[in-house]
Computed example of a mutant assay.
Amino acid sequence: MDGKKRKNIKPGLSVSVVQKQDQRSGKLTDGVVKDILTNSATHPHGIKVRLKSGIVGRVKEINS
């Protein structure tokens, strides 16, 4: 599924995000969505979320 569309992302979903400081390297961090921070329906770099661990990043992959 596409991490660029807000409708695909729900709290409790397992995702891989890229944090701000990791954007150059593309390092992904896995976690579970707590809050959705992007208000628009889509975002070209991925929807910004807060994970249950407190990490904020943009969704690159949705893990099933």
Rank of each mutant, 00 (worst) to 15 (best):
M1R: 05
M1T: 08
D2Q: 10
D2L: 10
D2A: 09
D2T: 09
G3P: 00
G3N: 03
G3Y: 01
K4T: 12
K5Y: 08
R6F: 01
R6H: 01
R6K: 15
R6S: 03
R6W: 02
K7L: 04
K7F: 03
K7Q: 13
N8I: 01
I9V: 04
I9L: 12
K10P: 03
P11N: 04
G12K: 04
G12C: 06
G12W: 00
L13R: 04
L13H: 03
L13V: 03
S14N: 12
S14Y: 04
V15K: 02
V15N: 02
S16D: 02
V17D: 03
V17G: 06
V17I: 15
V18S: 06
Q19A: 13
Q19Y: 05
Q19S: 11
Q19V: 14
Q19F: 08
K20R: 13
K20I: 10
K20T: 10
K20G: 01
K20L: 11
Q21N: 08
Q21V: 14
Q21C: 06
D22C: 09
D22H: 14
Q23L: 14
R24A: 15
R24M: 09
R24F: 14
R24S: 15
S25C: 07
S25H: 09
G26V: 12
G26W: 12
K27M: 14
K27A: 14
K27N: 15
L28V: 12
L28P: 03
T29N: 07
T29F: 08
T29A: 10
D30F: 00
D30T: 05
G31F: 09
G31Y: 03
G31L: 07
G31M: 09
G31Q: 05
V32Y: 01
V32S: 05
V32M: 06
V33L: 03
V33K: 01
D35I: 04
D35N: 15
D35R: 13
D35G: 03
I36Q: 00
I36N: 06
I36E: 05
L37T: 13
L37M: 11
T38L: 08
T38Y: 08
N39F: 07
S40K: 13
S40R: 08
S40L: 06
A41V: 09
T42S: 04
H43N: 12
P44C: 02
H45A: 10
H45R: 12
H45S: 13
H45I: 03
G46W: 04
G46P: 05
V49E: 06
V49G: 08
V49I: 10
L51W: 13
K52R: 11
K52T: 15
K52I: 10
S53I: 02
S53V: 03
G54M: 07
I55G: 03
I55F: 09
I55A: 13
I55W: 07
V56R: 09
V56F: 02
G57W: 04
G57D: 01
R58E: 11
R58N: 14
R58D: 09
V59L: 00
V59G: 01
V59D: 00
K60Q: 14
K60H: 15
K60A: 10
E61T: 01
I62N: 05
N63G: 02
N63L: 14
N63A: 06
N63R: 14
S64T: 07
S64F: 05
